[in-house]
């Protein structure tokens, strides 16, 4: 009998408390593991801590207690630069707002993580960037700046940027939150096609039960804790 594969991301007793005059617990005692090829939807009411959990899983934030492991590597005592490198190589992010650099073209935005990683030549990066954009239906928009694109197109460029370094995990925080229905479906369909490519997992935070149902696994967060997924 073969050993179970190492989870891509694992949370062990993760708690995040925001210090202040009155401490606020964002996430409390969460244990979970995301394996290769999973499509996980994190749902929950507004302010329940689902985005906070995603930031912790994506190493954008550090737990107050507990540990996040990426491909089995503990990150609690990892220097910030090493965490940044891990994010660059292993994780891809899509946010509710596209966060594209306004002065750069779509292609330049997609190439940004590749240039930071410094593994490909300029020509290879350009070819890969164009390839990803073409796959997401943006071939003719590669040289346009974000302000020349529609909302759905910008979000697709943001997805292309998340795919730039071929990450093993894509973390998407309400990626369709600012889009109309047609664009929402289009973006969600694209995200769904990314699951399983080379064992890639996708973690999507959404408050839309309709979209969450299309994930292969659902996690429900209430008051910062994992709770049973409600019956739809």
């Amino acid at each position: 009998m073969s050993a179970p594969p190492t989870p891509l991301i694992e949370a062990r007793g993760v708690t995040r408390v925001l210090a202040g005059e009155i401490d606020t617990t964002l996430v409390a005692g969460i244990d979970l593991a995301i394996g290769p090829g999973e499509f996980v939807a994190i749902t929950g009411p507004s302010g329940s801590g689902k985005s906070s959990l995603m930031y912790l899983l994506g190493l954008l934030d550090s737990p107050t207690t507990g540990e996040i492991l990426v491909e089995g590597r503990p990150t609690a005592r990892m220097p910030e630069d090493d965490k940044a490198r891990l994010r660059l190589e292993t994780l891809g992010f899509v946010f509710q707002f596209h966060f594209l650099l306004a002065e750069f073209s779509a292609l330049d935005n997609v190439m940004l993580p590749m240039r930071a990683l410094e593994k490909l030549s300029e020509n290879e990066m350009r070819a890969r960037g164009l390839d990803i954009l073409a796959r997401l239906g943006l071939k003719d928009h590669a040289h346009k700046r974000p302000d020349q694109l529609s909302g759905g197109q910008r979000q697709r460029v943001a997805i292309a940027r998340a795919l730039a370094n071929n990450p093993k995990v894509i973390l998407a925080d309400e990626p369709t939150g600012n889009l109309d229905t047609a664009s929402t479906e289009q973006v969600f369909d694209i995200i769904k096609t990314l699951v399983g490519e080379g064992g890639r997992s996708v973690i999507i935070v959404t408050h839309d039960p309709h979209l969450a149902r299309r994930a292969s696994r659902r996690l429900h967060v209430v008051d910062g804790r994992l709770a049973p997924v409600p019956e739809d």
């Binding site: 954008l60 910030e80 994010r87 660059l88």
Partner: peptide, 11 residues
């Protein structure tokens, strides 16, 4: 913020 979230180092 977005550059740092993508993995660009502080340096």
């Amino acid at each position: 913020a977005i550059m740092k979230s993508l993995g660009l180092r502080a340096n």
